[in-house]
């Protein structure tokens, strides 16, 4: 018997009697103001929120705050004035020198300041991890209270790769002292956009 068959037959023999899945959690915590909660939590984990109401505002922010950064790329065509052109579709290793990447998120989650991003919003999977700084644009109306609502949004959507990103890359492996920028972005800016 090969290992697969062997393992499966041992499981069949040893697994206990079928128990049912539990009912879904009733009334998980909701926040009166999810956006405010999101900002607070993001602040706690080392990120910054910037409320904006247009793409011009984001471009202005980039111009004023990131003027000294050499390589800025974005997956948002609306930001083409301030970001590199024709950067897409290269060998992922070539993105090693990206200073700032600006991408879009499907939605954010207030309880943990996580943002849901799938492959098509990254251009290349490595982008949000390899850049020195990460900026993410999310619509104000797309901030949900908790992870149950979040997975309600993800639902059965199809993606090759998707990730929740919550703040900059970090480690506390040395004596529990928190250091931002372990391998990935050293900081994270979230533009919360209110189009009204």
């Amino acid at each position: 018997m090969n290992s697969r068959a062997e393992i499966l037959s041992r499981i069949k023999e040893n697994q206990p009697e079928l128990t049912s899945l539990p009912a879904e959690l009733t009334a998980p915590l909701q926040y009166a103001d999810p956006v405010a909660m999101f900002s607070t939590v993001l602040g706690n984990i080392g990120g910054t929120t910037v409320p904006v109401s247009s793409y011009e505002e984001i471009q202005d922010h980039i111009k004023t705050h990131f003027a000294d950064q050499k390589r800025i790329v974005s997956t948002l065509p609306e930001l083409s004035q301030v970001t590199e052109a024709g950067w897409e579709g290269q060998d992922p290793h070539s993105y090693e020198d990206i200073d700032i990447a600006v991408i879009r998120a499907h939605f954010g989650v207030a309880e943990n300041a996580a943002l849901w991003v799938t492959e098509e919003l990254m251009q290349q999977r490595v982008i949000p991890f390899i850049c020195q700084q990460l900026a993410v644009v999310v619509q104000r109306k797309d901030i949900y209270s908790n992870m149950h609502e979040a997975y309600g949004q993800v639902a059965d959507s199809v993606y090759g790769f998707g990730t929740f990103i919550a703040g900059p890359s970090k480690t506390a492996d040395i004596e529990q002292s928190l250091v931002l920028g372990a391998h990935g972005p050293k900081n994270m800016t979230v533009f919360i956009m209110d189009l009204n």
């Binding site: 989650v109 996580a114 993606y159 790769f161 998707g162 900059p168 990935g184």
Partner: peptide, 17 residues
């Protein structure tokens, strides 16, 4: 684990790139 609300990255691998 650490008292964080979530890990920085929760990556869902569905298909190879």
């Amino acid at each position: 684990a650490t008292g964080q609300p979530i890990t920085t990255y929760s990556s869902h691998f569905n298909k190879p790139r």
